[in-house]
C-alpha cells in the first residue's frame, strides 16, 4: 500500500515530526514506518479500530518508545523527555481523572505542575475556554462524561501549548458541547497551534479539519487535504452526479470519452464514473458545449471523507 500525499510544499519547521517510526509488540506490528510532519492547524487522525492511531498518539505524547525511528515535538524527542510537555498538551482517550478533586482544583493543579507564573489566572482562562465555570466547584466524580472530557481538555490547555494532541476528544459530548469543542480546536489552529485529534466518527474529522492523516493497518495510507487526496487517487473511479438540458444526449457523448468509465441514466440525471478526475472535469464543459447541451448541475458524488476512507481501507 502506497502513501497518498497532498501536502503543499512548506518551509515551516514541523511542530510534530515523525521520521520512519515503527512500533511493534513481539511479532505484532502496531505502527509501521510512519513518516509525518505536522505544522500549525488542525489535523484529523483517522483510521479503523486497531489501525494504530492511539499507539501513534502515545508515541507523540512521550508515553511509548518507538521501536524504530524518531518522534520529535518542537525538534526534541518525546520519549524520556518530560520537558516537551512545556509545549505539548495531551487529552488521552482514557477518561480517568481524580474524581475527589473539583474541576477547579484539577485544572489549577495542572497549572501549578506546569509552574506557570499565575496559575489561578491560567486555570480560570482554561475553564472559561471549555465553558465549565458553572460546575467548577463540584467534585469531578459528580460530572457527566462530557464534563469530565472538558475538564481534561481544560487541564491540557492550561499552559497554552503549541501542540495539542487529543485522542477521541468528542466522546461523550452532546451536540452543543461538540460544536463548541470544534470551534475551540478551530480557533487554536487559526491561532497558529498544531492540533492533532483522532476520531472514529468521520463527520467530526470532516467538520473540524480538512487535513487528515489516515492510518490503515499501522501504515500511513494518506496524508493531506482529504479532498485532494481523493483526487490524487487516480486509480479509483470518481463518481459525479450530472444534470443537464438533455441527459440522454450527454450520456452518449460522454461514453466516447476515454476518461469516462461508465454512465448511468435515471430520473435524477446522470451518474458518471470517471477514471481521472482532472481530465474529466476539464473535458465535461467542452463536451457539453460541443453537443449543444446546457449543464445544470455537476456534483462530485463521493467526496465525503467516508468514501475516501473506504477506498483506502479496501486498497
Amino acid at each position: 500500500m502506497s502513501t497518498v500525499t497532498a501536502d503543499s510544499a512548506t518551509a515551516v519547521a514541523p511542530a510534530v515530526d515523525l521520521r520512519g517510526v515503527s512500533r511493534w509488540y513481539g511479532n505484532v506490528v502496531a505502527v509501521n514506518d510512519v513518516t509525518m510532519a505536522l505544522t500549525a492547524g488542525v489535523t484529523g487522525l483517522l483510521g479503523p479500530n486497531g489501525a494504530g492511531k492511539t499507539t501513534l498518539l502515545h508515541m507523540m505524547a512521550g508515553f511509548l518508545a518507538p521501536s524504530r525511528g524518531e518522534v520529535l515535538v518542537g525538534g526534541a524527542p518525546t520519549w524520556r523527555n518530560p520537558s516537551v510537555y512545556r509545549q505539548l498538551g495531551l487529552v488521552s482517550e482514557r477518561e480517568a481523572v481524580h474524581g475527589f478533586l473539583t474541576g477547579w482544583e484539577f485544572v489549577l493543579a495542572s497549572a501549578k505542575l506546569h509552574r506557570l507564573p499565575q496559575p489561578e489566572a491560567a486555570a480560570r482562562r482554561a475553564i472559561d475556554l471549555v465553558e465549565l465555570a458553572d460546575a467548577q466547584d463540584r467534585r469531578i466524580s459528580t460530572y457527566s462524561k462530557g464534563m469530565r472530557q472538558r475538564t481534561r481538555v481544560a487541564a491540557a490547555l492550561v499552559h497554552d501549548p503549541q501542540v495539542l494532541l487529543l485522542d477521541e476528544p468528542f466522546n461523550g459530548m452532546d451536540p452543543r458541547q461538540r460544536m463548541h469543542m470544534m470551534e475551540l480546536l478551530h480557533g487554536m489552529g487559526e491561532a497558529g497551534r498544531t492540533v492533532l485529534f483522532s476520531s472514529h466518527i468521520l463527520e467530526e474529522v470532516e467538520q473540524v479539519s480538512g487535513t487528515v492523516q489516515v492510518i490503515v493497518a499501522g501504515r500511513l495510507a494518506a496524508s493531506g487535504d482529504y479532498r485532494h487526496i481523493r483526487r490524487l487517487m487516480t486509480n479509483r473511479p470518481h463518481v459525479f452526479t450530472v444534470s443537464s438540458s438533455d441527459d440522454r444526449a450527454l450520456a452518449v457523448a460522454l461514453m466516447g470519452q476515454p476518461s469516462v468509465t461508465g454512465v448511468e441514466l435515471d430520473a435524477g440525471g446522470l451518474t458518471v464514473r470517471a477514471g481521472d478526475y482532472g481530465t474529466f472535469t476539464r473535458a465535461l464543459p467542452k463536451i457539453a458545449r460541443g453537443a449543444g447541451i446546457r449543464l445544470r448541475r455537476v456534483l462530485p458524488a463521493d467526496e465525503s471523507l467516508e468514501s475516501v476512507f473506504s477506498y483506502l481501507v479496501e486498497s
Binding site: 505524547a61 508515553f63 518530560p82 510537555y85 482514557r94 481523572v97 484539577f106 506546569h114
Partner: peptide
C-alpha cells in the same frame, strides 16, 4: 491502575 498518573506525568516535571 486507574490511569490518573498520566495527568501528572504529562507535565514538565523531573520524575
Amino acid at each position: 491502575d486507574d490511569g490518573t498518573l498520566v495527568h501528572v506525568l504529562a507535565k514538565p516535571l523531573p520524575r
